[in-house]
């Protein structure tokens, strides 16, 4: 059994929520690990490391209902890589909405990538309310599901799991509104300013 390569597909890379999920994963997986940020554009180095791996985990946020451009660029480069062994691809995706199902289309895109390029497709964890969940009392839910994902990769038993905050949509909207108001306050921007209807002053 080879190593696990973890790719952070977020354009925010080191400041991303994906990075936070990766840190949890690293503490919980019993497997040697390699890491790569998709924005770093050191694809040759990445490929040489990937050739010592049996598994590849793509960790990324949902962007405009699909894959972030940063990850798409990376996947195009991976398509052209010469790999010496069969690799299984796993997905850990997060979105800021409360419904984990909003991630489904992006997961389908990765499945299609695997089919087209002869990668095995492995496990999936779809995290919803992913922008905030680690800063709430519900962080344990995300952590518990990440542990399940780790076990599935270690034991080579495919899972397709999802998680979100166990609250009503109404409560989620209220909590997210407060979250964003506080976010704006850090930049000295009021709720009213954030609420502007203008786009580029029009």
């Amino acid at each position: 059994m080879g190593k696990l390569m973890i790719v952070n597909g977020s354009p925010r890379a080191v400041k991303s929520n994906s990075k936070n999920y990766i840190e949890i994963l690293k503490k919980n997986i019993n497997k040697d690990i390699e890491e790569y940020n998709a924005i770093s554009k050191k694809i040759d180095l990445f490929i040489s490391k990937l050739n010592s791996c049996s598994d590849l985990l793509l960790v990324f946020p949902l962007y405009a209902d699909g894959l972030p451009v940063t990850l798409m660029r990376f996947l195009k480069e991976l398509e052209n890589a010469k790999l010496t062994q069969k690799i299984k691809v796993h997905v850990l995706i997060n979105c800021g909405f409360v419904e984990p199902e909003q991630n489904n289309v992006a997961v389908e895109m990765i499945k299609l990538f695997c089919k087209k390029n002869h990668f095995d497709f492995g496990s999936v964890l779809r995290i919803a309310s992913g922008e905030a969940i680690l800063k709430t009392p519900f962080a344990f839910i995300a952590k518990w599901n990440i542990k399940k994902l780790c076990k599935s990769i270690e034991k080579e038993k495919q899972v397709n799991i999802k998680c979100t905050m166990p609250i009503s949509k109404k409560t989620f909207i209220k909590a997210s509104t407060n979250y964003w108001i506080k976010y704006g306050q850090k930049n000295n921007i009021t709720k009213e300013q954030m609420d502007t209807m203008k786009i580029e002053d029009i």
């Binding site: 405009a64 699909g66 798409m72 195009k76 087209k116 989620f172 997210s176 509104t177 964003w180 786009i199």
Partner: peptide
């Protein structure tokens, strides 16, 4: 590309989020 808008269009669509508010 992979059932998505390819990079040129997807880049623009991602950059269009100023048309939305943070609030949900």
């Amino acid at each position: 590309y992979l059932g998505s808008y390819d990079i040129t269009m997807k880049t623009m669509l991602e950059r269009a989020i100023p048309t939305q508010k943070a609030f949900i």
